[in-house]
Structure formats: C-alpha cells, structure tokens
C-alpha cells in the first residue's frame, strides 16, 4: 500500500485521534522525537534524530510509586499505560527496541514499567535514506532499509510512502488509514552505509578473551568520563532508583544511569571494582560487542553512530572494532 506524502498530515491526524504520536522534530535546536502537535509537517529525511527515541518507552526519569509513612506505610503504585505511536523510527533505533525487549521482558523477569509501555506502543518504522558519515548499521548486521520488528514498515517511494504491515497492530494501522491509501507503490530500498566496519562474527568471542589486553590502555585514555555516549545511545538501558523525599512522604523514581560515572559501581563500603576510565570504557565496549552477544545472541551496538558523533573527546567505537579485529 502507498500513502501520498501530501496526505501525511491527514494520516497523522487519524493516528493521533486515540494515541500520542511521536515524530522526528526539533526542540531548541536539537533533533529528537517530539509529540506531534497536530498540524506541523514532518520531515522523515535528513540526519537521524540526535537523541534516540528510547525515552518514550524507558523515560530518563520515571516515577514508580508514591509513599507516605505514618502509623503504617501507604504505597501507591504509579501505573501508566499510555497509547503511543512512534512514527518514522529508523531501523537502527528499531533494533535498539529489540535489544531493550530482551533486557526488560525476557530471562524470567518482566519489567512492568517497560512492558506496559511496550504493549501499548505502535512502531511505524521508516527505511533510512540518508545515512550519516558516522552510520555503520549494516556492518552490525542490520538492513537500513528494513526493520523486521516494526508494526508497519515504511519506505520512500518518491512522492509516496510505501507501507507494509508486519503485525496485527500494523494491520490495524493500515485499516485506520485505509481511506488515504492506494494499492501499489515501488519503494527504493538500496540504502547502504558508507562507513564499513570490520565487525567479524568471531569478534564477540575474541573480545571475551581480551579482558587484559594492552589495547585497553591505549583506546581508553582520551575518555573524559562523561555520560554522553551512554545517554545518546539507543541501547544503553542502565538505571538507578532513588527517592524524592518530602518529610514523611515522597516518590520513588528510577532514572537513567551511566557506567561511565565514578559512582556507578561504587559499593557501600567504598570499594569500586571499576576505579578508572580504563575499566569503565572497557566494560562499555565489552557490553556492546561481547557480553550482550553472549547472553542474547546479538550485538548491543546497532551502528547508529551517535556516540561517534557526540563524544567530546572524539573517541570512536568503530576504530576500536577495526583495531580489535586486527590484533
């Protein structure tokens, strides 16, 4: 099925009738997913959003429950099941949702905060037509033209968007948009990244044996220990839990945390098993390229290139991959 690009706003109005629709937009100069305002044109091309859409399903600060202490303790859980649509999410960010699904929904524990949002979200993905020079998703085993876990997959067909439903949710979307759709449509699906990285199938296991390799001394020194890479990363999912106390009552919340911070692994007695940036950067690279693969059979790096683009010290995980493949 195809949708004329001139009918895009009309289609978004239909979707926004009973859900919050998030689209690529801009706030104060930063390209990110924004709540569609009901009328603005949406630009699905250009560079990918500078911030990933992960905060829609995994907010950077999420209230969990309110409490009140008196003779007894009252606890009131905060349950949110918003109906949400993420429109125009690219295959790299779709793969990151696949990674988060593994973490939050599998291996015997379901994270109810994540699952409530995940069940109620509809993912309308857009094949990438404009990879940046820092994009390397196809080296990480992704197809920039296709997101297998999308509800609806869109691809650019010139004057139209070519839509295909992959799930029951997706079929419902196409039914809702039926009046605006027509048969046919030829989509261009030949996007490829210009940056090719030597991510060999053997690398995850090879890295597992390189914990004490001298390479870490060299590649970690430029790090300034900030959390930019982890906060712009679509797959970094670590969080901390804390409370906002006001006397005898307050709110428990969870918020993003970063393995780059000095207090991340600091224990109650003061011991820190990752005392310097060497151990911290090693852990991050290992997690992305080896540990996650061992546990879930896929990489935790989706090749979106955001950390390469934003690192204050211009550190580059792709240079590390190439180097590690060679040694």
């Amino acid at each position: 099925m195809q949708l004329k690009k001139t009918d895009l706003t009309g289609a978004l109005k239909i979707l926004a009738a009973d859900a919050s629709v998030f689209v690529p937009g801009e706030i104060e100069g930063i390209k990110r997913f924004v709540l569609w305002d009901g009328e603005s044109d949406v630009d699905l091309g250009g560079a990918n959003t500078q911030l990933p859409p992960k905060d829609i399903l995994f907010p950077c600060t999420e209230k969990m429950y309110n409490y009140k202490m008196g003779d007894s303790i009252e606890i009131k859980e905060i349950v949110e099941k918003p109906r949400q649509v993420i429109f125009g999410i690219r295959p790299c960010d779709m793969r990151s949702i696949d990674c988060m699904d593994h973490v939050f929904l599998e291996k015997g524990f379901v994270d109810s905060y994540y699952s409530r949002k995940r069940e109620n979200v509809t993912l309308i993905a857009m094949g990438c037509t404009t990879p940046e020079r820092t994009c390397f998703c196809d080296s990480m085993g992704l197809d920039p033209n296709n997101a297998p876990n999308a509800d609806v997959m869109m691809n650019d067909g010139g004057d139209t968007l070519v839509l295909e439903a992959y799930t029951e949710k997706g079929k419902a979307v196409l039914e809702a948009l039926n009046g605006l759709l027509s048969e046919g449509g030829q989509a261009k699906k030949d996007t490829a990244c210009t940056l090719k990285v030597n991510m060999t199938p053997e690398l995850p296991e090879k890295l597992a044996g390189m914990f004490d390799h001298p390479i870490w001394d060299e590649v970690t020194r430029a790090c300034i220990g900030c959390a930019t890479c982890t906060y712009v990363c679509p797959t970094c999912y670590c969080f901390d839990i804390d409370s906002d106390n006001h006397g005898a009552e307050g709110t428990k919340f969870r918020c993003w945390d970063s393995c780059m911070f000095s207090d991340y692994t600091r224990m109650a007695g003061g011991h820190d098993p990752r005392p310097t940036k060497k151990e911290r950067v090693r852990n991050r690279y290992m997690h992305k390229l080896s540990y996650f693969h061992e546990r879930y059979g896929q990489h935790l790096c989706v090749g979106c290139g955001r950390c390469v683009e934003k690192c204050p010290a211009h550190m580059d995980i792709t240079m590390f991959i190439d180097k590690a493949a060679e040694v």
């Binding site: 911030l51 950077c60 300034i224 220990g225 900030c226 959390a227 930019t228 906060y231 712009v232 970063s258 911070f261 204050p312």
Partner: peptide, 8 residues
C-alpha cells in the same frame, strides 16, 4: 541530559 561533559 546530566552527562556532565561540561564539568569533566
């Protein structure tokens, strides 16, 4: 985003 890059 509390990355503390400006501080570090």
């Amino acid at each position: 985003i509390h990355c503390y890059a400006c501080r570090n």
